[in-house]
């Protein structure tokens, strides 16, 4: 199992390097002159040229790429923001926890509410709770979260004065972004859980459990739900990725200074070190989340664990053969 985890983590390395090369190449070809953004419109051509040289933009593509990869992966230093002069890593250290917290809370709420709703809908198939859950899910899947966020700001901030609408100075500031961000997740989790549960509750072992006279709650949560979790875990990995992406919109709407806000201002101002670093870090986070999802499979489903262990065995066997 450990070998499998190490192997999966090692496969992340080429993925992250590939992401770094792709984002570097995209930013290289994106129109917009960072030197002009820094110096302003009334800079002379000589000044612009000097600024480009200072930023390393005058070098050929491969030289720039080599310097970028060396700086990022060998020196582990993504450099400083061209516009603020502030080290990117220092800023990321402050911003990453905020984005991760927002994404994690959004996902946690989506799971904590969405799964029970889906279970309730499944065990009450075609009854009123099922219909209410599914109508609610369709509604929240269909509504764009940014629109919902703006409306929530007007209702809960402006009209009712219940909640603050921007910043992160108190715990109340997190309520609107987390709730607005999690509603689409709640909806999709509920739908997915319902469909997975519907398959499982028709299984023989559930019928056996019922025949044994087990309580309905025990059948639902101890026997049926764990078996319905596999597709849900896959979806949760994607959900966290979506939360990280969606946090950029939420951070901008609620003025929460996380990575999303940092990335969007970096893009508009052509602050390449910021954009490249944030994208690479997001790629690392996504990669790690996906590895975690795979590991979780093993704990939830013994069949998958057996496959992993088999892979481990094969790896050991291959090593022995190679040594021989």
């Amino acid at each position: 199992m450990i070998n499998y985890i190490i192997k999966r983590l090692l496969t992340l390395i080429p993925v992250v390097i590939a992401v770094a090369i792709v984002i570097f190449t995209i930013m290289y070809f994106v129109p917009g002159d960072p030197a002009k953004n820094i110096l302003g419109q009334d800079a002379t051509e000589e000044q612009l040229q000097r600024e480009r040289e200072l930023l390393g933009l005058a070098d050929p593509y491969f030289v720039q790429l080599g310097k970028f990869l060396y700086q990022l992966f060998i020196k582990l230093n993504p450099g400083t923001s061209w516009l603020s002069g502030f080290p990117v890593m220092t800023e990321l250290r402050v911003r990453i926890p905020r984005t991760l917290l927002l994404s994690f809370l959004t996902m946690a709420l989506g799971v904590a509410v969405g799964i029970p709703l889906g279970v309730t809908a499944a065990v009450n198939q075609n009854k009123l709770p099922d219909k209410l859950c599914m109508i609610g899910s369709m509604t929240f899947i269909s509504i764009p979260d940014f629109w919902l966020a703006l409306e929530a700001v007007i209702l809960f901030g402006l009209r009712l004065h219940w909640l603050p609408t921007f910043g992160m100075s108190s715990w109340k500031c997190w309520i609107l972004p987390v709730v607005c961000g999690s509603l689409p997740g709640i909806a999709s989790n509920a739908r997915q859980t319902r469909s997975a549960m519907l398959e499982v509750i028709r299984s023989d072992y559930v019928a056996t459990a019922k025949a044994k006279g087990l309580a309905p709650g025990a059948i639902k949560y101890k026997h049926a739900l764990p078996n319905a979790l596999i597709p849900l875990i896959t979806m949760m990995g994607g959900h966290l990725a979506r939360c990280l992406g969606g946090s950029m919109i939420l951070e901008n709407i609620f003025s929460m200074p996380g990575m999303g806000m940092y990335l969007t201002t970096g893009i508009t101002q052509r602050d390449y070190p910021v954009v490249r670093s944030v994208v690479v870090i997001l790629a690392i986070v996504f990669g790690v989340v996906m590895v975690l999802v795979d590991i979780v499979y093993a704990f939830v489903d013994p069949r998958i664990k057996a496959i992993y262990e088999n892979q481990t065995f094969n790896l050991a066997f291959w090593r022995k053969r190679k040594d021989a």
Partner: peptide, 18 residues
């Protein structure tokens, strides 16, 4: 000084007294 990046939020922050 509060940073409010979403411009429509500035009017709301004024209205709510933030």
């Amino acid at each position: 000084i509060s940073v409010i990046t979403e411009v429509s939020q500035i009017a709301i922050a004024l209205e709510t007294g933030d």
